[in-house]
Design a protein around this nucleic acid. Structure first.
Lengths: 338, 338
DNA sequence: CTGAAAGCGCTTACAG
DNA sequence: CTGAAAGCGCTTACAG
């Protein structure tokens, strides 16, 4: 690969590299004529300062890194929102796909980014401790942690769980079921809020009515099929830890002859696009992924600028009422048709 | 931010920076005992060679850059597949979100990546010319171009268009419609193949039966509504430039009383996830996004390794038969029910 | 307004 | 087996 350096430009312009640097950075005084000549030459020669050369002196890269294992789906929406916020502030967003927490840490320790946004299940307490020692501005999206220059930006998933309970209770339901997600921050908190609010309302959710799930369609579907096969009475209000699980549930229920929402109401969480096209369309909790992405990027930038120390920010959810929830049926428990 | 450098490690270990470098890079001979002491110290001190320091000497970054404007949806699936292929070859994939072609070019000229995968509508001929001069290994995903160290990896969208025509003709259709996409490589080529194959079969597609679309649901839906309102006879076989447009069409048609696929068959393109859940489920051309991502990453790596000069690779589509296409109805033109 | 020089953190011949 | 020295491409006091 051919690389044009500042030396080449200096030689072509007949000046020192110092003058080229000055002319191009625009900072210090350079004679108008000289500056123009250099700028023209630089453009002509496709000169662009080397990232590494510049960074070695500056200790500032101008890039914010988003560290994750995947980038499809949820992550992509998040990243697009972050990108907008970064560009507005003059930063570039790099999505750095890392297999392990160690790889995330290595990349951070190699001083490639001015700030890091971390959403990686492989990033453990050990890494967090190192991160804190480096004093690099960083934002977590999947755990509640703050210190020095480290913040967290999260969904208020506990509250979301509470809202879910309130909504279903408001429709008159008294018999509930919860479809678990994975043991991530959001999975745990949504569950905790849902149970807590039911308890406050004097409603007990027995453990056999908590079904296994993994944030995907299939696991929830299988769990529900097993529950149906067990012959246990079907509750009328179901909260699934996310939309995919809710859809898996609906699939199993309708296959067994239950009507949604007439017999059973199902409330999802996330507001994925598919939800509005599904039949029945999915009633769900809208968590606001783009908002979170924007907030996370802005928080990272604020941390880089030293505007305030690390802190925890939470964003709230709103309900999206569609076709999968209705008032509780008159009889205590739901039964399949025919 | 605190930064541990090779000097700190050298001082702590009581050796020169040369020895630290040797010990950590693993290459040259260092006494076993010394190496172990240095490795232990480096780990303890959270030392990791600076990306910039190392890169300045090496002229090799170990990173492959994916340059695009967005990362959600389609792009995310692509990036995840690329990431797998990159990691297998010891490269890191960075997704660099750039607003403009100039930004892509600047990033490339700043020598931050060993190879670039480019999927950016803002990257024009002017940029391509500069790219060629830099001799940086690069792969385009959205144009047919090859030279020196530049390859293209593409969907064979012309052939996809041909297959679409063959499939609908095979079902007995003779009256067609095409829903346009945008003027991207794939949009243009899908159209070209579809028309060409119809022509070969002696079928003419009059211009009033080419409807405007923009690869999204809404534009296609509006176009179809206008067509219906015009009172022109409805063809029985429709090929939409992508799945979103196909869904827009179905929305407009069913709202007007047409039955899909009994009255009108609709064939999409892309095989998006939604297609299988939609009612009717969408018959579509599966283009293989993950395959393309993997191929693109492998091609970039081959170019970096100098295995062969730039070239053009195309991947083919396969039909996914579902519920939106059926045999042509007996009457010449479709009519809405009731 | 311009330039010589130091130095950022590393690697790599080269000498010992 | 170990280290002094040069140099990668830049920026930034500093001198003139």
């Amino acid at each position: 690969m051919r690389r044009t350096t500042i030396k080449d430009v200096a030689k072509a312009a007949g000046v020192s590299i110092t003058t080229v640097s000055h002319a191009l950075s625009g900072g210090s005084d350079v004679k108008q004529e000289t500056r123009e000549r250099i700028e023209k030459l630089a453009a002509q020669m496709n000169y662009m300062p080397s990232f590494s050369g510049r960074n070695l002196k500056n200790a500032r890269t101008g890039v914010i890194g988003l560290y994750s294992r995947y980038i499809r789906g949820f992550y992509g929406v998040l990243a697009d929102a972050m990108c907008d916020a970064c560009q507005q502030a003059g930063f570039e967003l790099d999505v750095i796909l890392a297999e392990s927490g160690d790889m995330v840490m290595s990349s951070i320790l190699s001083k490639r980014v001015d700030g890091a946004i971390i959403l990686h299940s492989g990033f453990g307490d050990r890494h967090t401790e190192v991160l804190r020692e480096t004093e690099l501005p960083a934002v977590f999206l999947d755990r509640e942690f703050s210190a020095g220059r480290i913040s967290s930006v999260l969904f208020d998933s506990y509250k979301t769980g509470c809202q879910a309970a309130d909504y279903l209770c408001g429709l008159g339901h008294r018999e509930f079921m919860f479809i678990k997600g994975q043991d991530t921050y959001d999975g745990v908190e949504r569950r905790r809020g849902f149970y807590q609010r039911l308890r406050e309302r004097g409603i007990d959710l027995p453990s056999e009515r908590e079904l296994e799930g993994a944030f995907d369609r299939t696991t929830a579907q299988r769990s529900m099929e097993r529950f149906i096969a067990s012959g246990a009475p079907m509750p009328t209000g179901i909260f699934a830890a996310n939309d995919d699980s809710a859809i898996g549930c609906i699939l199993a229920l309708t296959a067994a002859g239950y009507r949604v929402p007439e017999d059973v109401s199902i409330l999802g969480c996330d507001n994925i696009e598919l939800g509005q096209w599904y039949t029945p369309s999915l009633t769900t909790m809208k968590t606001g992924i783009s908002t979170m992405g924007r907030l996370a990027a802005q928080e990272t930038i604020a941390l880089i600028n030293g505007e305030h120390p690390g802190r925890i920010t939470k964003t709230e959810s709103t309900i999206v009422e569609r076709g999968s929830c209705a008032g509780a049926p008159l009889s205590e428990a739901a039964a399949p048709v025919g």
